[in-house]
């Protein structure tokens, strides 16, 4: 048995065994960077963030720690970054939900991304797929539209006001039909009901359905991007299938608190560009149905403003509110 003094010494020593503080250096980064993800560990955004962070660490030559701050429809993560010091040590992986859709859904946002965050770079842009299950045996997008006009269809979504829900709403608005919306907790359970023939159609992220399409459990009628998806070459875009105005995508970007010093901002967007040239990152994004993007700084900010205006119209037309 240790005597009291030696045990105390041992305890103190193991406390001090933690890495000694780094001397203040002019170099960035000189301490770990926290990359905030506004969702619980395990989601799609989380996966992208972790892959991205693993590469970014090597390029910046410093630790990048992913920290999940889920809550309040992903607004909590936005608030945390908006409130942090703009020193480049707190960054955010933002996606279109909290960045451009939530400002329309929540009348009392504590931190408006457009005014409290500095967009650094768009990381990737992912298109979605329109899929039908055995309950609705149609083969093309126009057939789906015709069926939806003949009788009210039922569609599932990953959750209320998710990209999956809004893209389906937009489809109805563009094609001129109304359908009943069934929100689920995530794409998985919704797809289960699609395959089981309990609902008619879904607009969903591509990686969640690629296997089901190949296994002929569901059929893909269209992808929602401006070009076809490499992994599903035979599936037309919605534009090709006859809906000239229909595009929708889910995207991820890197942002920081407003007021980042210009050199750090430049260093981060340079590092992002390099990360997006890494084959592992590119492959992972491709599996997600996403393509690496090349919008930085001002261009990314303009892109966000355009997206915000566009989803705002859809949200207003459908009269969705989360408050």
């Amino acid at each position: 048995m240790l005597n009291r003094r030696s045990a105390l010494a041992l305890g103190a020593a193991s406390l001090l065994a933690a890495p000694a503080p780094l001397k203040a250096q002019s170099r960035y980064p000189n301490k770990p960077i926290t990359l905030i993800v506004s969702y619980a560990a395990g989601g799609g955004t989380d996966a992208v963030a972790r892959i991205f962070a693993a590469r970014l660490e090597k390029i910046l030559d410093g630790r990048v720690l992913v920290e999940n701050r889920p809550g309040a429809a992903a607004n909590l993560g936005t608030e945390a970054v908006a409130a942090a010091a703009p020193d480049g040590y707190t960054l955010l992986i933002g996606n279109q939900g909290p960045m451009v859709v939530n400002p329309h859904l929540f009348k009392r946002l504590k931190a408006d991304p457009a005014t409290t965050l500095d967009p650094i770079a768009l990381i990737a842009d992912a298109s979605l797929a329109v899929v039908v299950g055995p309950r609705l045996p149609v083969a093309t997008l126009p057939e789906l539209v015709a069926a939806a006009k003949a009788k009210t269809l039922v569609y599932g979504s990953a959750s209320n006001a998710s990209a999956s829900h809004l893209a389906a709403l937009l489809l109805g608005q563009v094609a001129g039909f109304e359908a009943r919306h069934v929100p689920y907790r995530g794409a998985g359970p919704a797809l289960n009901d699609l395959v089981g023939g309990h609902i008619d159609f879904m607009v969903t992220t591509i990686p969640s359905v690629t296997g089901l399409i190949e296994g002929k459990k569901v059929s893909a009628l269209a992808v929602t991007g401006t070009s076809r998806f490499a992994g599903l070459p035979e599936v037309p875009t919605a534009i090709e299938a006859g809906l000239k105005e229909y595009t929708a995508s889910a995207w991820y970007g890197l942002l920081g608190p407003r007021g980042l010093p210009a050199p750090i901002r430049a260093q981060l967007s340079q590092a992002t560009r390099e990360t997006l040239r890494d084959p592992t990152v590119v492959d992972r994004l491709k599996d997600d149905g996403a393509t690496p993007a090349d919008l930085e700084g001002q261009a990314f900010a303009e892109f966000m403003a355009k997206e915000r205006a566009r989803w705002g119209e859809i949200v207003r037309a459908a009269n969705i509110s989360l408050e």
């Binding site: 995530g186 998985g188 296997g211 190949e214």
Partner: peptide, 28 residues
């Protein structure tokens, strides 16, 4: 058999398969 995750852990397994270039689904 379907590539559909019944719970959060299985959803992560889907992610792990995708990272590895295996598309989960009936064809696996």
């Amino acid at each position: 058999t379907l590539g559909l995750p019944p719970n959060a852990v299985m959803a992560l397994m889907v992610g792990a398969m995708l990272i590895q270039g295996v598309i989960p689904g009936p064809q696996v």
